[in-house]
Design a protein around this nucleic acid. Structure first.
Length: 266
DNA sequence: CGATTCCCCTGATAGC
DNA sequence: TGCTATCAGGGGAATC
């Protein structure tokens, strides 16, 4: 699932491929992904030039000419493929046709992805709901934003507190810090270590071009390799890489959390 | 009003 | 083999 490192990888690759290109058309067979009437969306998109590519949390932002902004959230299984029209992958839901004979295709098995088109004002309002970026936040700001109480796993996943972390990286960060996912934040003694490992793990994942445990692929259809090095996420009953005890899976708010019950005590 | 549960969706996998 | 049931989960809506 595209979290911060995956979206950052998409952003970096897109900058090299589609900057200053223009959209000549757009097609979709799953119009609910586009959060605007499709014929209006098409009218706006046609002829717009791609000026900038940015990322905010798990969102990709494509700045267009005439002060329009595409806001894309890949949710669980969405990803972009940049290729010729003949090579579009399975489960393609939306195709952006570019002025260089190539397409940007959104593939998304589960159809959860969302694409919005905004003016600057609308975009800013939408983005203001998100917390700061984990890679640039200072420790004092991080500490300030943390609630006084609550389960740490839930806090890491809350996008309005810190934005960009999902289930994979939350589980990996907590394992590295030896913190049980149900630990109340008030009981965490070394917040600075949590802050540091959050950055370390996200940076390492970006270097490895993200995780492809689920459907994520990069623009070229290649997998990220962080998933091969993960320690606990979706590894129930496998040995903990540190102590060899069996990794356990519990449900927190209907989401699974994998952790080592021996290393990560509450 | 904050916390929890449901729902969207499809493919992979488990169990019989 | 082939059927059905379960699971994966981001985030918004509904509900407790």
């Amino acid at each position: 699932m595209p979290e911060l490192p995956e979206v950052e990888t998409i952003k970096n690759d897109l900058e090299k491929k589609v900057l200053n290109r223009a959209f000549i058309n757009v097609w979709s067979n799953t119009k609910k992904i586009i959060k605007k009437d499709f014929s209006n969306f098409k009218k706006i998109i046609k002829g717009k030039k791609i000026n900038r590519i940015k990322r905010r949390g798990k969102n990709l932002i494509i700045s267009l000419s005439d002060d329009y902004y595409l806001l894309i959230h890949f949710k669980m299984t969405g990803h972009f493929i940049y290729s010729s029209f003949k090579e579009i992958p399975k489960h393609t839901r939306v195709i952006f046709f570019l002025d260089n004979e190539k397409v940007l295709a959104l593939s998304d098995v589960r159809k959860f992805a969302k694409i919005n088109i905004f003016t600057k004002k609308e975009l800013d309002l939408e983005l203001s709901k998100l917390g700061p970026e984990p890679l640039t936040i200072s420790f004092s700001e991080f500490k300030k934003r943390m609630p006084k109480k609550g389960k740490i796993k839930n806090i890491l996943l809350k996008q309005e507190i810190i934005t960009g972390i999902g289930n994979i990286y939350a589980d990996e960060i907590l394992w590295k810090c030896k913190i049980h996912p149900l630990t109340d934040i008030s009981q965490i003694k070394d917040l600075n270590n949590l802050y540091k490992e959050m950055k370390n793990i996200l940076k390492k994942a970006i270097k490895l071009r993200g995780s492809s445990i689920s459907d994520y692929k990069d623009l070229q259809g290649e997998k990220g390799t962080f998933g091969d090095q993960r320690k606990v996420y979706r590894k129930e009953n496998l040995p903990c890489p540190y102590c060899q005890n069996k990794i356990k899976r519990i449900k927190i708010n209907n989401r699974s959390s994998c952790f080592c019950p021996s290393c990560q005590k509450i």
